[in-house]
């Protein structure tokens, strides 16, 4: 994420900022053009999720949704993706969020995964 910069003291961790998966997310979703405050909020949420999911790096989260076959072929891992969906739901509950706010938080994490090639969908909030 070469064009993302933060003032010292307000940075999310270096690991998040330097992550190729985060760079891909920001570029693909158009967040590179978002305000610094919005970008920081996105990174803070992702970092909190990484911590909740067992102190895993963002790229590790993406990798866990795939399985690598013989010869390096890459396929979606049904088990990995299901576990990720469950972890996202648990994370939202852990943060005490529900309703529209909960949907937004869960789908923010899903956005990170989606833009890294993990097909998943969240339930829309309208009821």
């Amino acid at each position: 994420m070469s064009d993302v910069s933060y003032e010292e003291g307000s940075l999310p961790s270096d690991g998040i900022v330097a992550s190729p998966a985060v760079a891909r997310w920001f570029s693909s979703a158009g967040y590179d053009a978002a305000s610094e405050a919005d970008r920081r909020a996105l990174l803070d949420d992702l970092e909190a999720f990484c911590a909740y999911a067992g102190d895993r790096e963002p790229d590790e989260l993406v990798r866990s949704c795939f399985r690598i076959g013989e010869g390096g072929t890459k396929a979606i891992s049904v088990k990995g993706r299901r576990e990720m969906q469950e972890t996202i739901e648990a994370f939202v509950a852990h943060r005490g969020l529900s309703g529209h706010a909960g949907t937004v938080m869960g789908n923010r994490i899903r956005s990170f995964l989606i833009h890294n090639g993990v097909f998943m969908q969240g339930v829309p909030s309208f009821r």
């Binding site: 979703a29 158009g30 949907t103 789908n107 989606i114 969908q121 969240g122 909030s125 309208f126």
Partner: peptide, 11 residues
């Protein structure tokens, strides 16, 4: 993007 935000869906 606006439709996604209406329903809280991933952007």
């Amino acid at each position: 993007r606006m439709l996604s935000r209406m329903f809280g869906l991933p952007e």
